[in-house]
C-alpha cells in the first residue's frame, strides 16, 4: 500500500517534471521571441521608410505603415509576429531577396557539420585528458591541463583561426584554406543534405570527400580546442570527486587493477554529469562558430549572420538570432532532462 502510494507520488512528480519542463521551455522561447521583437522595434532604421523610400509623400508613407500593420497596438503586433514565426515565416532578407527561413535551412547544415566534428574532437581528446589529469593530480600533466583550460577562456577564437590559417595552411600546407571546397571541386556532387562530407560519400566521390575534410579539419579543430578545454576541466573535477570516495579505496584494497578502478569504478558515475557538460559545450560551439565561420569564409549560419549585420539586413539578423537561440535553448533543456532521467539521485 505504502509503496503504491509512494510510486504514485513519484509518477506524479515525474509527470509534473515533464509538464513543467514543457511550460518552462515554452516560456523561454516566448522570452526569446520577445527579445528579437523588441530588438526589431528599437532599430533606428524605420522599416516603413526602407520600403517606400525617402521621396514618398506623407499619404504614401501612412498607407504603407497601415499596410505593414505598424499602426496596431504593440501587443497585437507581437502576437502577430509570434504567429508568423510559428508558421516558419521569418520575413524576407533584403540582401539575398529570399525568405530568411529558406536561407537558414540552406546554411545551417554547414554549421552543424563543423560543430559536430568540433565536439567530436573535444570529447575524444577532452575526456581522456581530464581523467588523466585527475589521476596525476598536481603533476606536470595536471598543470599543463590547467594552463590549457585557462587559455581556452582567454584566446579569441577569431585570432586563433587567423593564426591557424597562417601556420597550417600558408606555412605548412597541411590543410586546405578558407571555404568548404577548392573551386574546381565545387558543384561536383549533388547537394542532398548540404553536409558536404555526407553528400560526397553518398555520391561516392572520394576526391571531393578528401578535399572537404581537408577544408573542415582546421576550423573544426579550433572549435574543438575550446570545447576540449572546458570538457577536460569538468571531467577532471568530476573524476577527482569520485577518486576521493571510499568505494574507490575499497576497490583498490581488493586488488582491482588500476585501469579498472579508474575507467570502470571511477568513470561510470560521472557519465551522467558529463552528458550535460557535453551538451552545454555543443551549444557553446554553435555560438563560437559565428567567429570561426567569418574567419574561414565558411558558408554557415554564423557567416550569414555577420554578413547580414554589416548589410543592416534586420530580418536576416533576427532570424539567425532566433534559430541559434532556439537550438541553444533546446540543447540546454534536453541535457537538463537527460540528466534528470539518467541520474537516479535527482529524481
Amino acid at each position: 500500500m505504502a509503496t503504491d502510494a509512494s510510486m504514485a507520488v513519484r509518477a506524479g512528480r515525474g509527470a509534473r517534471g515533464i509538464g513543467g519542463f514543457v511550460v518552462v521551455t515554452a516560456l523561454t522561447f516566448l522570452g526569446l521571441l520577445a527579445i528579437t521583437f523588441f530588438i526589431g522595434r528599437v532599430v533606428p532604421i524605420d522599416p516603413v521608410l526602407s520600403v517606400v523610400g525617402d521621396r514618398a509623400t506623407q499619404e504614401q508613407y501612412d498607407a504603407a505603415r497601415i499596410a505593414m500593420g505598424l499602426d496596431r497596438p504593440l501587443l497585437v503586433q507581437f502576437f502577430d509576429y509570434v504567429w508568423s514565426v510559428m508558421q516558419g515565416d521569418l520575413g524576407r532578407s533584403i540582401s539575398t531577396n529570399r525568405p530568411v527561413a529558406d536561407d537558414l535551412l540552406r546554411v545551417f547544415p554547414a554549421t552543424l557539420e563543423m560543430a559536430t566534428l568540433g565536439i567530436f574532437i573535444g570529447v575524444v581528446l577532452g575526456v581522456p585528458a581530464g581523467v588523466w589529469a585527475a589521476t596525476r593530480r598536481g603533476e606536470w600533466v595536471d598543470q599543463l591541463m590547467r594552463v590549457f583550460a585557462l587559455l581556452g577562456y582567454s584566446v579569441p577564437a577569431f585570432w586563433l583561426g587567423l593564426v591557424g590559417l597562417a601556420v597550417f595552411y600558408a606555412g605548412l600546407g597541411w590543410v586546405a584554406g578558407p571555404g568548404r571546397l577548392d573551386i574546381f571541386y565545387e558543384g561536383l556532387v549533388p547537394a542532398r543534405t548540404n553536409v558536404m562530407l555526407i553528400d560526397a560519400a553518398l555520391a561516392g566521390d572520394w576526391d571531393v570527400f578528401r578535399n572537404a575534410l581537408s577544408h573542415l579539419l582546421l576550423p573544426a579543430s579550433i572549435l574543438g580546442f575550446f570545447s576540449l578545454a572546458f570538457i577536460a576541466r569538468m571531467t577532471r573535477s568530476f573524476m577527482l570527486d569520485q577518486l576521493g570516495q571510499e568505494f574507490i579505496t575499497t576497490a583498490r584494497v581488493k586488488g582491482v587493477p588500476e585501469w579498472r578502478v579508474i575507467w570502470v569504478h571511477g568513470f561510470k558515475p560521472i557519465r551522467v554529469p558529463l552528458i550535460t557538460v557535453i551538451g552545454l559545450s555543443y551549444a557553446a560551439l554553435l555560438e563560437g562558430s559565428v567567429m570561426i565561420e567569418t574567419v574561414f569564409s565558411w558558408p554557415g549560419i554564423g557567416n550569414y549572420l555577420t554578413t547580414a549585420l554589416l548589410n543592416a539586413d534586420m530580418n536576416a539578423v533576427l532570424g539567425s538570432t532566433l534559430v541559434i537561440g532556439s537550438v541553444f535553448i533546446l540543447i540546454n533543456k534536453v541535457s537538463d532532462v537527460l540528466y534528470r532521467v539518467l541520474d537516479p539521485r535527482s529524481r
Binding site: L32, V43, L305, I324, G325, F328
Partner: peptide, 15 residues
C-alpha cells in the same frame, strides 16, 4: 538561456 555573443550582436545591430 540565450547565447551571450549572439544576443550582443543582435543588440549592436539594432543600436
Amino acid at each position: 538561456s540565450l547565447p551571450k555573443l549572439i544576443l550582443a550582436l543582435a543588440f549592436v545591430a539594432a543600436l
